[in-house]
Design a protein around this nucleic acid. Structure first.
Lengths: 151, 151
DNA sequence: CAGGATCCAGTAGGATACTG
DNA sequence: CAGTATCCTACTGGATCCTG
């Protein structure tokens, strides 16, 4: 009987510090922006593209659902819809439904979403600035680990 | 026979655009810093604490493994070790082993890690600055969704 | 004390099919 | 075209045991 209860009590114990962590608002925002597709959707709506040398191009402008799906190539519509709804809920994007014959829905960055996009640009800049260092450190670490220090 | 092959081919097909996304270095860094515990470890080593009103306090200083585990309360040693190793590999923290009688290991932020910590501070600042807006938007959205617009 | 190895649950996320 | 619902897989991440 008590076998499953142990599991449950442990799960409940987890909730306590989990809630403690979830209390911090910045943690919530961090987990929101750190989402895999959020950054890409923001980048797409902001006119920025993930691929640094090609199709992506332009300035911030509203995009249709299908356009977003095309820009983000391999995203499932589940994730795209889910991400867009979350961003809309937080007021980072606006969803505009135009009742044409086939329904047209456009998404656009709000001021708030635009500011977050700017911030992500800073993160991107940091990453690009220090990527070589990180890569070098990583290579050195791997070489050290792979039988290097034996001789 | 071919039943499993379909699955495999689909999984392989996924790899292609997955690799395309993984090519972008900033994406790698983004997923690195967006890791749940990375931010907390960085914050702990940087002297910052997740809980805004209590024990956490101090300036950037080296911490022992057990100290980190204590500061981050409910982290499993698997995640802590994993996170620390990843950060060490990227050159964001240094791992110092002191061969005392019980082995003592201390972790410290590098210059690079410190700069990332600064950046995360900016993210945190943004989150704190705009959290009320986000929360308001979220509440409004939820109210609208929960039978609000019927009347 | 610091951490490696292993097992296992929870969940994020993708494929598919269907609706308005 | 835009979106929802369902199923299912794979990965993340925690607990536990064990070693230098």
């Amino acid at each position: 009987m008590a076998t499953t209860t142990e599991r449950e009590s442990r799960a409940e114990a987890r909730r306590r510090y989990d809630a403690f962590l979830a209390e911090c608002p910045s943690r919530q925002l961090l987990s929101r922006i750190s989402d895999k597709w959020v950054a890409l959707v923001l980048a797409a709506l902001g006119g920025d593209g993930p691929a640094p040398g090609g199709d992506c191009g332009g300035e911030p402008r509203p995009l249709r659902y299908s356009e977003l799906a095309r820009r983000l190539s391999g995203v499932s519509q589940k994730m795209l819809t889910q991400t867009l709804r979350a961003l809309e809920r937080d007021g980072l994007v606006t969803r505009t439904v135009t009742p044409t014959v086939p329904v047209t829905v456009t998404y656009e960055l709000t001021e708030l979403g635009l500011s977050l996009h700017q911030l992500l640009g800073q993160v991107k800049a940091w990453a690009e600035a220090h990527m070589d260092e990180v890569l070098a450190n990583r290579a050195a670490y791997d070489a050290r680990a792979a039988g290097g220090p034996t001789s």
